[in-house]
Amino acid sequence: MEAFQGCPGSRMMDFSQKKVPEGEEPTGKIESQLRQWPIQLHLISPLAPYYRGADVLLTADCVAYALGDYHREHLKGKSLAIACPKLDEGQDVYVGKIKAWIDEAKINTLTVMIMQVPCCMGLLSLAQEAAQKATRKVPIKYLVVGLQGEILQEEWV
């Protein structure tokens, strides 16, 4: 029987021996695709002009660090907010803000990116709750990111 190793979200793991295949490391300066500030979900106004009619990306805090291609493959062309469903307080405010994106800012789509650790599902639940409360409907997609930056799952809500 395996010893209990604690919460998967905070279990210690070391990927330092992971090798990046030759020729796969990008060369030159990589431009940021971020086109707004602030980005933390408590700090943003859901009615800020860059959210109106936008494709919005709601990302769990850790995702951008795990995914090597986050800016180019996922953030590009989207308006962003980040949050941590495990550590952030006052998450009922988050539901109201996501609902305001859908109903008032009339966003075009919502993409939720979370990590594979169980606690991260909370961010998707918040988005689903907000979508259920909203009167408008928009396509919502979620992506689950592995600890070493692989896309494990991509689904429509």
Binding site: D55, N108, T109, T111, K137, P139
Partner: peptide
């Protein structure tokens, strides 16, 4: 694209 999917959804509605 994701943008086109959102537009399509709104136009179908």
């Amino acid at each position: 694209t994701m943008t086109q999917i959102g537009e399509l959804y709104a136009k179908f509605q």
